[in-house]
Structures are given as structure tokens and as C-alpha cells.
Design a protein around this nucleic acid. Structure first.
Lengths: 101, 101
DNA sequence: TCTTATACTTTGAAATTCAAAGTACTTTTA
DNA sequence: TAAAAGTACTTTGAATTTCAAAGTATAAGA
């Protein structure tokens, strides 16, 4: 039995990370407030996770003003999409072994 | 969009935990050495994860001597099986939303 | 008998997670 | 128009988690 845990990306283990990446897989871009309410997170928690995902190159942020208010939008990078897809595939193949039989 | 992150069980986020639970889903019982080589873990790491999974009631251990050597076997508990299945279902429904479309 | 191996447990440093508090405005209310 | 409340984050650091090195105890091999 090979459970290939190695393909599971440490960067996406945390459920907040999973939520951010997942949301950015299906949405071209999302801003801080949207992510915050979507994932029901505190400001600090969201900020630190987006920060580290950005530092890893999996997402990118764009800061601008909308009207007179600051607005940060996040989008997944091509590398992020590849890495997250790999992770999901690893998870999937992984638990096919747990569920199936 | 509802990403229901709440059904994802914190106890199983870590990949080592995922590996232990997964291995115990398909094997009636496994001993320390088997889990260690299967998951390629250090002794301390495996011991601390099995310890906490046991404290949470998701697995149970049985200590005995095999010949003259100590041997600890681990098995999933009914509650563990339910909790892990719920977790896998949450993950699955979760990333159907990321992958599909 | 000495060295190496097995089967863990203990320990604590390092990394991670998270929310409270802080900053810098903008908007609303009185 | 001054004060209060809200928005959009960032900073900070305490709490928790993760992990491997070292320790313990005994067995096996040379």
C-alpha cells in the first residue's frame, strides 16, 4: 500500500488555506472582504494566510483604491493553480484508498 | 457559494493524521513499526500523533509483548470511523466545487 | 561481552495558527 | 461639524501544534 503522502502539499493542509485556494480556483479574483465573509474569518487570520500564500507564490494581491477606500484583491497564480490541482489530486487518490473498500 | 469548511475536522488536517487514519480505515490493526515504515515517519512524530488521536478517542492502542518484545497495535474506533468518514465527505464535497467547473 | 537494533517515550525548540489590538482612514449620526 | 462608528486592513505576540533529537529499556547479533 502506498499512501503517497508526499504529494500532499503542506501549504494547503490548513482549512483556511484550502478555503482561500478553492475560492480563488473558481473566482477570477476576490477581495479581502469577500474572502473574509465567505470563509467567516477574522481579519488577522485571513491576512496572515493570504500573506503566506502570496509569499509562496501561489496567489497574488493587487492593492488599489475603490472610490476613496483601500481595496485588496487576490487571484491565484499559474503556479498556484498547478500546485493546488496537484494537491487535490493527491488527496483524491489518497482517500479513494480509504473509502473504496 | 458555501464552502462549508466547518465540516472539515481540525484533528485530521495534518497529513500524518490523515495517513494514520487512512491506514487504519483499511487495516483492522497496525503496529507502531508498520505505521512508521508505511508513513515514513520518525518515532517521535508518529508517537505524538497516535497519542493525540487516541486522546481524542479516534483510535485505540493495545500494548502487549510479542515474544519478548513490546508491541503496540493501533485500531480505529467506531467514533473515529464516523468522524473520519465525515471529514472525507466534507473534503470531497468541498473540492468538487474547486475542481468541477 | 560489546555493539547494534528494536520499540517506543520524553523533551523542548521551532514553526504555525489565530485573534486582539493597532493604524489610517471614511462614513454616519447627532 | 464634532464625535462616534464603520471599513479595510496590518501588527503583534500568546497559544497551540509539529517534529525530531535524545533518552529509556530491552533484545539480538557478532
Amino acid at each position: 500500500m502506498n499512501l503517497d503522502l508526499k504529494n500532499i502539499n503542506k501549504a494547503f493542509e490548513n482549512k483556511v488555506r484550502l478555503g482561500i485556494m478553492s475560492a480563488l480556483m473558481v473566482n477570477e479574483e476576490l477581495d479581502f472582504s469577500s474572502l473574509k465573509s465567505l470563509l467567516e474569518l477574522t481579519d488577522g487570520n485571513l491576512a496572515s494566510h493570504t500573506r503566506s500564500l502570496e509569499e509562496m507564490g501561489y496567489i497574488q494581491s493587487k492593492k488599489q483604491f475603490v472610490g476613496r477606500k483601500p481595496n485588496t484583491t487576490y487571484a491565484i497564480t499559474p503556479e498556484g493553480r498547478v500546485a493546488f490541482t496537484d494537491h487535490l489530486n493527491a488527496l483524491e487518490s489518497f482517500f479513494k484508498k480509504s473509502m473504496g473498500k
